[in-house]
Amino acid sequence: MTVIGYMKRSALEGVLGDISDKLEVIAPLPSGDKGAVELRRFEKGAQVSIGPVKPMLPLKTIFLPPVEQIFRFSKSENETTVTASTPITRDRVVFGALGCDIAALALIDEVFLREPVDEAYRERRTRTTIVALACEGQGPECFCASVGIDPVRPGGADVVMIPVKDGFIVETITKKGEQLGTMLQGALRDPTGPQKKTARSFTSTSRSDVDLSAPAGGWSAVWESEAWEDASARCIGCGICTVVCPTCHCFDVHDERHGNGGERFRKWDSCMAVNFTMMAHGENPRPQHRARVRQRYMHKLVYFPENHGAVACVGCGRCAVACPNRTGIGEVADRMREREEDSNE
């Protein structure tokens, strides 16, 4: 980790504009009229919304787009030509990524970079430089500190920007980060002592008291628990939690025909959907709402750790925010553990 300088906030759009000549730049941009923020491609002249609002859709969208063409095909007489789609055409940089989201990428890597490697995902990963924004906690829902994530200098970031008065202290972490650093040089000044000090003492307000640990007797003890009945009672099964979750990565595959050709694409899917496991002959091994709710939490808290060694939750709190009933994973884990009679989550 090397401090490479201080950048004024006011210089940011200009720097991104310059970089966008060489790289595709992705940054949090304002979306809609209600102060929402979205990670999108930055075009020169755009205003960046780096700061207090968390994008509703996480960083995974940049690497695992909601809808992604896998290949196109064309048919003639007796031949079918399959052309794999190009995931990206230029190297990219993401500015203002948050620690929770970056940590989630490491979890998705576990799935998509193991054999057989998902080439499209790998290409997007290797050709993208990640510039993190040190996060002081963007809402009362944040609890990344509870799951062992450093929101200030998150592992997986290539560059870190630490907010100080009117600007950022920029630190490079990886080789890739250093290369990007050179592109930032023009906008950097030597940081002052107080600025360095602020950066060093930068802390997050992220809650560290959310407990996702197993109930007494392990998760298998609650497999049949009534608590799932409670957990699923108010859940409407919309699956918005899976959409906004930075670690959810399930997808569905669809074909479309156009004339003599067509395409195959994949699309985010949700274990909360009734037909997620519906088979062609009409049987659904997971027909009950209760079983689907259980699957979602068990996958995050039990199956993923069993297969990959880490809980598939990065404490971003988006599920609780997006849920029409404001139910977050922490609350469910609490209930499972306590299994107090008064539970209803």
Binding site: G32, P66, I236, C238, G239, I240, S270, P324
Partner: peptide
């Protein structure tokens, strides 16, 4: 703006 999450339908 819709992300086809189906929350409108499910609620």
């Amino acid at each position: 703006k819709c992300i086809r999450c189906d929350a409108c339908r499910k609620i």
